[in-house]
Amino acid sequence: MQKAFLVDGSLCLGCNTCAMACKNQYHQDKGILWRKVREIGAEEYHNDNNNILPTLVSYQKAPKAQMPMERFYFSLACNHCENPACVAVCPVGAHTKDPETGICKHDQTICIGCGGCVKACPFGASKFNEKMNQAEKCSMCWERQADGKTTACVQSCPVGAIAIIDLHDPKYKEYANAAPIGIDYAINAETKPSTRFIHPTMPKEVYRLPKG
């Protein structure tokens, strides 16, 4: 099993409810977002202060289709990679990959705050909390899932734009290897990120007033 976020950009309103629902659940400090709603076409990835090394991939090159400003989005948190760099680099085993679900979990009680994962993650999913001197990240609400609930982000999304799927389930095989159109998300990165996307499109008919 590889649990994964399926993000539907055609439904996403960019409302940021998911990102705030995550803060509501875990009380991330000011300046830290485990889940971030990223605008398609906006080059913002490299502004992430937590990620000090050059990144391997960028989430957002301007897509091939022209997208208007502040209208189309993807909601992204930890990608729960199949070969997670955070697990490989962590010297104390604070990062683990659950063999049953494939969720990449971080345990702050073990974390020594070396920052290795923050540097190693190509997607900037691990954040460094300077007040606590520890790393932190999305662990796909595994405690909530164990309690029979879904994740805070999935539950709060008003339009069902985030779902949790099993990439290994034949039911979702259309997503298994498909890179989304027009977004430079490195599905082929060595870490094998699990997040999958449904790409948004503009309305069929758009009329704008003529110039002048």
Binding site: S10, P203, Y207, R208, L209
Partner: peptide, 16 residues
């Protein structure tokens, strides 16, 4: 305005 809702509609019509 081409609003967030407009971006999710079947058709958007801009008006003065």
């Amino acid at each position: 305005v081409f609003t967030e809702a407009a971006s999710k509609a079947s058709q958007y019509i801009q008006i003065k």
